[in-house]
């Protein structure tokens, strides 16, 4: 199939960017979206132009590196997939596709479609861990009984790959779904209780300091999340936060 691509090009963080049109030919339906961009970049390099810069790593939907706002939706029109898992068969010959970086003040553009998502790392560093010494004295996980439902919910929260689609989809650029998943995965387990109060306060505080917007419960994040992280996590974080604020 032949496509018209409208891609955001930006030289660096300090420069003004703009949408540039490209024609790309010979795209197969079995290609992933990133492979389609590889084809475009080969065309550009052959012509002596700068290739389009975009984030990618594992290309199998588990690392959270790929991003891209495709036709107005993070990771494109498909559900529960990352951009690297998005197949070109979802598009039609002759389509025009808008490709933009994830937009948020807390995700500044580095170059073209690549954004700096280290604000997520800083939220995680603020409290998304358990201070248990695991070097040389690891305790069998089964030694601490955990309710099966809690274990499942915790696991589901922990499947968040931190790609930032929730922020990109949210009309307010809110990071509540990401932060709540990282809070929930510990809040549901006995191992997470020791630091529960400090964790939620520190992570929410960091989230606010990074300049993310406020959640207005539109639910866009849950729909666009490639891992299907549930809004229940946000309600849980709200409870945890209120509990911690009143306690601390």
């Amino acid at each position: 199939m032949n496509l018209t691509l409208k891609i955001w090009r930006q030289k660096d963080a300090a420069s003004q960017g703009s949408i540039v049109d490209y024609q790309v030919k010979g795209i197969e339906g079995d290609m992933s979206f990133l492979e389609m961009l590889d084809v475009l970049n080969e065309q550009l390099i052959t012509k002596g132009d700068d290739p389009v810069v975009f984030d990618h790593d594992c290309r199998e939907g588990i690392c959270g590196a790929c991003s891209l706002q495709i036709n107005g939706e993070p990771h494109g029109p498909d559900r529960l997939v990352t951009t690297c898992q998005l197949h070109m068969r979802k598009f039609n010959d002759g389509d025009t596709i808008y490709i933009e970086p994830f937009r948020a003040k807390a995700f500044p553009v580095v170059k073209d479609l690549m954004v700096d998502r280290s604000s997520f790392d800083r939220i995680q560093q603020a409290g998304g861990y358990v201070s248990v010494n695991t070097s040389g004295n690891t305790i069998d996980a089964n030694a601490i009984p955990v309710n099966k439902d809690d274990a499942d919910e915790s696991f589901e929260a922990a499947t968040c790959i931190g790609c930032g689609a929730c922020v990109a989809a949210c009309k307010n650029a809110s990071a509540m779904l990401f932060t709540s998943a990282k809070v929930s995965q510990f809040a549901l387990l006995p191992q997470g209780q020791v630091e529960a109060t400090d964790r939620v306060l520190a992570m929410v505080n960091q989230m606010d300091e990074e300049g993310f917007g406020n959640c207005t419960n539109t639910g866009a994040c849950e729909i666009e999340c490639p891992k299907g992280i549930s809004l229940e996590n946000i309600a849980r974080m709200n409870r945890e936060y209120l509990k911690a604020s009143l306690k601390g």
Partner: peptide, 28 residues
């Protein structure tokens, strides 16, 4: 206040934004 803060959280707007694909008009 929240609306202003939220607008400020995305200084550069999307050229194409399909808000209707994942959230109701009323909520947005």
């Amino acid at each position: 206040v929240l609306e202003l803060k939220n607008r400020n959280a995305r200084a550069v707007k999307y050229a194409k934004y399909s808000g209707g694909a994942n959230a109701s008009w009323v909520s947005r």
